[in-house]
Amino acid sequence: MSAETSSAAAIGEVEGVSLYDTDHPAPLIEAPRKRTKKTPKSTRTNFELYGWLFMRLSGIVLVVLVLGHLLIQLVLDGGVSKIGFAFVAGRWASPFWQIWDLTMLWLAMLHGANGLRTVINDYAQRDNTRFWLKMLLYTATVFTVLLGTLVIFTFDPNIR
């Protein structure tokens, strides 16, 4: 390219006149992906990351709680044949086993509900089906957790 073609004089009268100068600056054009006040608030959160982490952390705790529970209920001291109202009353007389069972209930229900949520998301293809299956799951989960918590806290060994 020669020096003449790139100079303002070579472009011609109309094109050569600049619309902007120091008193009339050109409008600022935002960078394409710049976040401004007008950008809609993102609905993305780290929920799935925390869900993933919860499955692993609760899983480690549940291995201890659930395998201990199975050992006590199904293996030690005659296995399942010893279980009855009197046996439950004996164990829940101790706050240690109340807290054990309460922690196990909450962690297992949330761990299981999150697992089933993943399964529903994977296999239910229609939006409506997926929505209602998850509503059913959440309803059953809240009901079960609250019922179990109520039973542990209001247990009365002298009910009769």
């Binding site: 209930l105 299981g112 079960t144 009910i159």
Partner: peptide
Amino acid sequence: FLFVHVLDTALVRVSPE
């Protein structure tokens, strides 16, 4: 099973029988 198990355990609030 956990769902059923919480329901059956809840019967301790009904009666020992």
